[in-house]
Computed example of a mutant assay.
Amino acid sequence: MARFRFLFDEYLTFGALPAVVLTTKEKKQELLQSYFQTVVQKDIAERHKINNDTVLKTLLKLLLNSSYITISKLFNSLKSMSIPVGKSTIDNYLSYIESSYFMSEMYIHKSSVINQLQYPRKVYFVDTGFMTALSTKFSKNMGRLFENIVFHKLGRENETMYYYKDDKGNEVDFAILNEGKATALYQVCFDLTDEETQSREVRSLVKAGTTLNCQNLNLLTLEKPDVLKLPQEIRVISAAEFL
């Protein structure tokens, strides 16, 4: 397990791009930043004829440091940096970024598209290495990195996926739908040893299961604690089992 933990931490921190995996630890971030410049220049700016890529680069860095986005929030953040750009341009740039496969967006589970558009979208990236190499935060958010990996694995296996959040703020990371019905719910909790965190995540999962009439409840975590008292209907899955 110690070997798995070491390799998994490397995977979360530096991603899975082959050249990055094979290079020395000292050069990984430099290589990731070089790849980022290539994505900006070749896959987005040149393809969509963006002459001034300053806004694009800043927007991408804002996205990489965000879990949820709205056009208004991004607009206000750029405005506070004295970067003048319209909301329609931001919307276009988001479309360009997503079409390059660098980023994916996930909407909230609501009864109509109009309702969905009123809520923030969650964002995930093609590789976790970019999230750490270009982070403005001093410490790594291992839970967010783990959730990014879960998003891609579930996305490969399921066609329709949303996040769920009720009016009281109880949230579940992934709701899998089939023909409009929730068939599975997944909650990502990197560390279950904190009782308050565990209680919050489990409560949200159980409430969502009741509301959506879904009995397939899954709690994903790095390692299963030796002693864990959870409702019987919840299945705990370790990172090693999930991957």
Rank of each mutant, 00 (worst) to 15 (best):
V206D: 00
A240D: 06
E223A: 07
V39H: 02
L12V: 07
A184S: 15
S77Y: 01
L228I: 03
N148C: 03
D173V: 03
A19L: 12
T160Q: 13
D166L: 14
K137L: 12
K28C: 09
F36L: 02
Q215A: 09
S66W: 05
V172R: 06
E10V: 01
T24A: 12
L63E: 04
F102G: 08
E157P: 04
S111H: 11
T13S: 12
Y124A: 03
S82I: 03
F4P: 12
T210W: 04
N178V: 04
L212I: 09
G143E: 12
N141P: 12
K229I: 08
L243T: 07
I90N: 04
A133C: 12
V55Y: 01
L192D: 10
G155K: 15
N52A: 09
I108F: 06
V150P: 03
T160S: 15
V227P: 01
N51H: 10
F138G: 02
F6E: 14
L185R: 03
A175F: 00
S95Y: 09
L32T: 05
V20S: 01
F6Y: 13
S82C: 07
Q215F: 00
L78M: 10
Q118C: 08
K140G: 00
Y107E: 15
K137D: 13
F4T: 08
D166Y: 02
P225E: 08
E105T: 12
T160R: 13
I176Q: 07
S100C: 03
G15T: 02
Q215W: 05
I108G: 06
N158Y: 15
I108V: 13
S80T: 11
Y96H: 14
N218M: 07
E196P: 02
Y164A: 00
